[in-house]
């Protein structure tokens, strides 16, 4: 799985950070998404998929192998 984030779309809701804190973080100053791991391990895939689904800005895109 390869993860991409579209930072200009991000609305800093933090939903991804709540679901997958090992993959996503937020910048302190404005809360915009920071991608910690663009190739997360298999055990995190479900959480990353849910993050992409619930992201209110559709700012997370996944490429699944």
């Amino acid at each position: 799985m390869h993860v991409e984030v579209d930072v200009p779309r991000c609305v800093a809701s933090g939903q991804c950070v709540l679901l997958a804190p090992d993959v996503f973080d937020q910048r302190d100053e404005d809360g915009l998404v920071v991608l910690l791991n663009e190739n997360p391990p298999a055990e995190l895939h479900d959480a990353v998929r849910e993050s992409a689904t619930v992201c209110p800005a559709a700012a997370i895109r996944l490429e699944e192998a």
Partner: peptide, 10 residues
């Protein structure tokens, strides 16, 4: 305020 700080309240 910093959105991360708000998450702690959440």
């Amino acid at each position: 305020m910093s959105p991360k700080g708000v998450l702690a309240w959440r």
